[in-house]
Design a protein around this nucleic acid. Structure first.
Length: 480
RNA sequence: GUCCCCAUCGUCUAGAGGCCUAGGACACCUCCCUUUCACGGAGGCGACCGGGGUUCGAAUCCCCGUGGGGACGCCA
């Protein structure tokens, strides 16, 4: 069934009966986290795939909680990921006049009404209903009905405006991800669309905006499933076209729990700081809840071409840092060298290490790019080329033994005399190994400790060659 | 409590009634490569939540359980 629905949508779109317009509508009350980023990504990809428009709308009607910093953080996140929008950002706070007009119109037409219940009354009502085990809902006290006498309007109390939700029947929509969803109007109540001080509320603004911005597919988190019937009812009351809805399941943290401030809900820009390439994060996110057969690694261009709503999973997905790391390592291996150089330079500077002209950073990176999981690791691993390391004590103890000292001393003397190439260095080490009846690591390891400070590195001959003869010998003599 | 949603290896997933002895990827294990660590290569371990139906045939469709999640604001 769902397959069929998807096909019908694709068909209509292909015939240009529908020009796709999607939106991403964050509220600027915090940074752009991984869940929001995926919602934005899918919405963006859908528009790109169908040659439509992707709109960025800022839902900032909660004046108290919206901040310019959060706004900037969201923009930074979108930009880092490269999710470009065609229209916006459109701020809801700048559309207040329009919302007021619509509210007045609804009041005039009788699809909305004033309610004079106080917050205290409402709280008490809710508590009572919860205690009785029924769903907390507005009791319709001020809802006008034919033949009904309303209470006397109290003086000095500014009223809220409520939407007059249908009391019977059901709201049905064919969710592009979850299939048909049907909710009885009896489950709904008359929601507040304008606060006592006059500002409009979320569900109302969303309905008006989705309508007036001509949104064709609302792609959003499935925590909005419960808002959908309310929005559809308002849309119908306004005589608006109801868009299609696609509700994405949530992303769980690495531990299987809901993402929260304590559980992995960090800004996407934190991934930049942590050394991830945006294309790795994007590729990972794309694969979280969506698939194209067995494809795992693909570009955003490829993703936009393949993306469809009927291959989205309807179940929640657990975030897996290991797999993200694997993708990141992949993209580091295949990145342009210039890009890695600038990333490493920036990250080394943050460590207080200034990159010198020699050794050439690009060469150092090429030695390490296949073994780095992230850009910070990559930067740290080449740091010793520019900053003489303090050899690891345990490594010295283990590998720089009294027995091997004479061999290393003799080798150092020979190294001083050779032409400084990988091959010549290798030959010198090999000679020290064979002429003393040793195994290669017995000679290579002390050198590695002296030169890199640790026990793990690429081929020691290549490392020494790149480091340069003088510095290499200085480090060896520093240890023996 | 009420309503809604969800359920395939540890994790992300393929799966559109017969291509399923359930495929791929991450992780893990073994071996190979090797100059340490990685990379790479070859193998391996490992799943259809339970119970009923429908059907010649069910991971797939239906029902009931169970488990998980979400929503119930003058927040968004």
């Amino acid at each position: 069934m769902q397959f069929l629905r998807g096909k019908i949508v694709d068909f209509l779109v292909s015939l240009n009966f529908m020009t796709v317009r999607t939106r991403f509508a964050p509220s600027p009350t915090g940074f752009l986290h991984i869940g929001g980023a995926r919602t934005a990504l899918f919405s963006w990809a859908y528009a790109r795939k169908h040659g439509g428009s992707f709109i960025l709308r800022i839902e900032d009607t909660d004046l108290a909680r919206s901040t310019p910093e959060a706004m900037q953080a969201i923009l930074d996140g979108m930009n880092w990921l490269g999710l470009n929008w065609d229209e916006g950002p459109i701020y809801q706070t700048q559309r207040m006049d329009r919302y007021r007009q619509v509210i007045q119109k609804m009041l005039d037409e009788g699809t909305a009404y004033h309610c004079y219940c106080s917050k205290e009354e409402l709280d008490a009502l809710r508590e009572r209903q919860m205690a009785e085990g029924i769903k907390p809902r507005y009791n319709g006290r001020w809802r006008p009905e034919p033949g009904k006498t309303l209470p006397a309007i109290p003086t000095g109390i500014p009223p809220v405006v409520r939407f007059k939700n249908p009391q019977s029947g059901t709201v049905v929509w064919d969710d592009l991800v979850k299939g048909r969803i049907e909710i009885s109007n009896e489950e709904l109540d008359d929601l507040i669309i304008a606060r006592a001080e006059g500002t409009p509320t979320y569900n109302f603004c969303v309905a008006v905006d989705d309508w007036e911005m001509g949104i064709t597919q609302v792609i959003r988190g499935d925590d909005h499933v419960n808002n959908t019937p309310r929005q559809i009812n308002m849309l119908k009351a306004l005589g608006a076209t109801v868009p299609q809805y696609a509700h994405l399941s949530m992303i769980l943290g690495d531990d299987g729990h809901k993402l929260s401030k304590r559980h992995g809900a960090v800004s996407v820009t934190q991934y930049d700081e942590d050394g991830y390439l945006p294309e790795a994060v994007l590729n990972y996110l794309a694969r979280l809840g969506w698939s194209h057969g067995d494809e795992e690694i693909f570009s955003m261009a490829q993703f936009c071409e393949w993306f469809d709503l009927n291959h989205i999973t309807s179940s929640a997905a657990q975030f897996n840092t290991e797999k993200l790391n694997w993708l990141n390592a992949h993209y580091i291996k295949h990145a342009e060298i210039d890009r890695l150089v600038s990333e490493a330079t920036r990250r080394l500077a943050a460590l207080g290490i200034i990159v010198k002209a020699q050794p050439v950073l690009a060469d150092a990176i090429n030695l390490y790019r296949e073994r780095a999981n992230n850009l910070n690791e990559l930067a740290e691993s080449v740091a010793y080329f520019y900053h003489r390391p303090a050899p690891d004590a345990a490594a010295v103890e283990k590998h720089v033994t009294p027995e091997i000292m004479p061999v290393i001393k003799a080798l150092a003397g020979q190294l001083a005399a050779i032409e400084w190439t990988v091959e010549a260095i290798h030959a010198a080490i090999e000679h020290a190994v064979t002429s003393n009846g040793l195994k290669f690591p017995q000679v290579a390891m002390p050198l590695r400790v002296a030169v890199t400070g640790g026990t793990q590195s690429p081929g020691i001959d290549a490392v020494m060659s790149l480091l340069g003869k003088d510095e290499t010998l200085a480090r060896i003599y520093g240890l023996i």
